[in-house]
Simulated assay, not measured.
Amino acid sequence: MSGRFLLSVPLLAAGLVLTSCTSLPRAGADDAAIEAGAAVTVSAKDHKVGIDYALVDVNETTLAYLGKAESASLLGGFGGGRGGPPELPLGIGDVVQVAIFESQSGGLFIPADAGSRPGNFITLPEQTVDRGGTISVPYAGRVRADGRSVEAVQRDIEDTLASRAIEPQVLITTVRSRSTQVAVLGDVRSPSKIELSPAGERILDVISQAGGLSSPGIETYVSLQRRGKTATVLYDHLANTPAENIYVAPGDTILVNRERRTYLAFGAAGLNGRFDFEESDLSLGEALGKAGGLLDGRADPKQVVLYRVVPKELLNKLGVHTDKFPKNEVPVIFRANLRDPAGLFAAQQFAMHDKDIIYVSNSDSVELLKFLNIVNSVTSTAAGVSSDVVETRDAIRAM
């Protein structure tokens, strides 16, 4: 009886170790307790997330499209890089002054006894283009100005006065132009509204007039908003690509925004967490180095993966069938094989993007060692319990 009892002790101890986890120290509730205590549980089969993704190996083909960081384009979205500056018509809110000349005195505006005045003209008081888009000229009435060039409005007034004044000539001067302003906001030293000139201003010109950047150019994005459409480009790309430095147009809004470029590293990397690009572009190899490289005793060099959302258009170029993905953005896992010597060259050419996630898998041997350690800890505990029972029995007999 006592022999069978002693043989059953290790099995009993192993069972207690495996089933009495709630008695062990914990930082909080375990998953079983959380699920058991929930009033309502919304869960998928096998706890799967349910997001479809594509798996793409990093090789010579993918590097042809992903070997350098892509940059958005203002020129492609709005044009305006070539040719002259945009026209600046009059608009609502503009303050103008109208001067009317006649060829001789005795006309509609210049009396016959004008004498030796310096010129046969009158200057009307300054006025604002009203909300109806018009200005007022004596004997010509309300004249439409909004959306028209100064020359066109001048000719219109001259034609209206031609039958009453003596060879009238009209000169319109823009005193203050509120309709030809652009707003420059965000990470510039002096956010403000800037009035455009007929000479034309480009994006870098108005940013300069707003005091320039207040943040590092490598982390700064410039967004141009025009008539409900928006395009964004990295400031350094804008500064280094003259074709992207397009003309701004009246009513544009330019938003300068600093965004810290970061990536995450998890798994069997030397360091886990969030890392900054800082003031440089990074390749996959450099990002791994920044995260402490691969742990020699844990990592599987064949299973270094990177998570990124990629446009369908790019995947189609790579020959990936995207019919199963309804959206234009597709979740993609890029897999790099660093056990292959050529894989290190590929990792050094594969460009990182903002908000990428790197995960380094454990090798199969590490998972096996984890299991063996659990088995060893259980058997060691069971052996300790058996030894304690024997010692207790011998002590009782000695009494």
Score class of each variant (00 low, 15 high):
M399Q: 09
E87N: 11
G106D: 04
L294E: 03
V9G: 07
V305G: 05
S190T: 15
D113N: 15
D113T: 06
G28Q: 09
G217P: 11
G228D: 06
S71C: 06
G15P: 00
A383K: 12
S190Q: 10
N272W: 01
S71Y: 13
L11Q: 10
A336K: 01
A64D: 07
G37C: 06
T173A: 15
F334T: 03
D146T: 08
G267P: 01
G119T: 14
G289M: 04
V42K: 12
V320P: 03
L24Q: 14
L255P: 03
L108W: 01
R178Y: 13
K45T: 14
I110W: 00
A39K: 09
H321Y: 08
T22W: 14
T19Y: 14
T392F: 15
A346F: 13
R164L: 09
P311R: 09
L271K: 15
V58R: 08
G81L: 00
D30N: 15
S163E: 09
F78P: 04
A199M: 04
T174K: 11
A265V: 12
D236I: 03
P111L: 03
G289V: 03
L88W: 00
P111E: 04
D113W: 08
S197D: 15
D356G: 05
K193Y: 14
S386W: 08
K355R: 15
G217Y: 06
D156I: 02
N240W: 09
K48N: 10
L171R: 10
G119S: 15
P10N: 10
E219R: 12
R335G: 02
L171K: 07
R142S: 07
E158N: 07
L282Q: 04
P168N: 05
L284F: 07
A291R: 05
G81C: 03
T41M: 03
E126G: 10
S2G: 05
D236A: 08
R26N: 11
Q225R: 15
P216Y: 10
E87D: 13
H237N: 13
I166N: 12
M352W: 04
D300M: 12
L368T: 15
P168Q: 05
C21T: 14
P341K: 02
G212L: 07
P89K: 06
F345I: 13
F345S: 13
A13T: 03
G76S: 13
A29T: 10
I166V: 14
E367V: 12
S8F: 10
L55E: 11
V184M: 08
D354L: 02
L282H: 02
L74A: 06
V143T: 06
P86Y: 05
A291V: 05
I157R: 00
A383E: 11
G211Q: 09
L368F: 15
R82A: 15
A231R: 14
P191H: 05
F109W: 03
A398P: 00
V175E: 12
E201V: 10
P10G: 11
S377L: 14
S363T: 05
